[in-house]
Amino acid sequence: MKLTFVGGSGCATGPCPTVYLTENDTFVIQGFAVDPAEAEIALPPGELLVEVPRYVIENALTRVR
C-alpha cells in the first residue's frame, strides 16, 4: 500500500498524528489508539478507533481540496 503524506501534527519531536492519502483516494490516519469499550462504541471486527487533534484533520483537508 503506497501512502502519500498529506499533513501532520508538525511532530519535530514527540507524538505524531498524521494523515496520508492512498492511491484509492482514501485517507489513512495515524493517531492514538482508543479503547472501544471506553468510548462505548461497538466496533466491528477489523476496525480501529484512533484519535487525532482536530487541527491535523482540518489542515489536511485544506491541502487536498
Partner: peptide, 9 residues
C-alpha cells in the same frame, strides 16, 4: 506534541 516552532499543540 509541539510544532516545529515550539508551540504546544
Amino acid at each position: 506534541g509541539y510544532s516545529a516552532e515550539g508551540q504546544l499543540k
